[in-house]
């Protein structure tokens, strides 16, 4: 199969060369860090979503929202690691339905984040006291968030089973 121009470019970069050269020990280390990131993401954004959905209602939503910056940091780290993985084996990710669905779900998560912070939903959550139920609108947004992040995790884990059979 002909190699697409974008892939020729990716394979010409120093980053690709670096991953290719040190792969035997670099890949397991970066994968482990990617798993840490996923764990932190669920442990922060996931717990915030669960509170909004009614688990651990004794928590004041504004206080558990303090965990979100840590979740964003984990997201950024994992995004950067993802770019390294992609540059290491571009064909294994690009021609991969699990990876494509993962990107799609991450786009949905992005729209959902915009809906949460851009529409006054966040301002509404911030005012909730301990024990209070969130509105249906909040529960829909946080429910989508939780589902989408678990979906991203599933797709990520499934990437290896959807790898294309060819190697360049």
């Amino acid at each position: 199969m002909e190699i697409a121009p974008w892939e020729v470019f990716v394979r010409s970069t120093a980053l690709h060369g670096f991953v290719y050269r040190y792969e035997p020990w670099l890949w397991p280390i970066l994968q482990t860090l990617h798993y840490f990131g996923a764990t932190i993401l669920i442990g922060t954004i996931g717990l915030f979503d669960l509170r909004a959905l009614g688990v651990a209602k004794g928590i004041v939503p504004a206080t558990i929202h303090r965990l979100i910056p840590l979740g964003i940091a984990a997201y950024v780290c994992n995004g950067l690691l993802g770019i390294v993985f992609f540059f290491g084996h571009p064909d294994q990710y690009f021609y991969n339905d699990a990876f494509r669905l993962k990107l799609l779900l991450m786009a949905v998560a992005g729209i959902n984040v915009a809906a949460f912070y851009g529409t006054g939903a966040f301002a509404e959550v911030k005012k909730l006291p301990a024990g209070a139920d969130a509105s249906l609108r909040i529960k829909i947004i946080t429910g989508i968030s939780l589902l989408v992040w678990v979906g991203v995790l599933c797709c990520g884990r499934m990437i290896t089973f959807f790898r294309p059979p060819f190697f360049h």
Partner: peptide
Amino acid sequence: GMSLAAMGR
């Protein structure tokens, strides 16, 4: 600020 007791849930 987050209640640790409530986190037990």
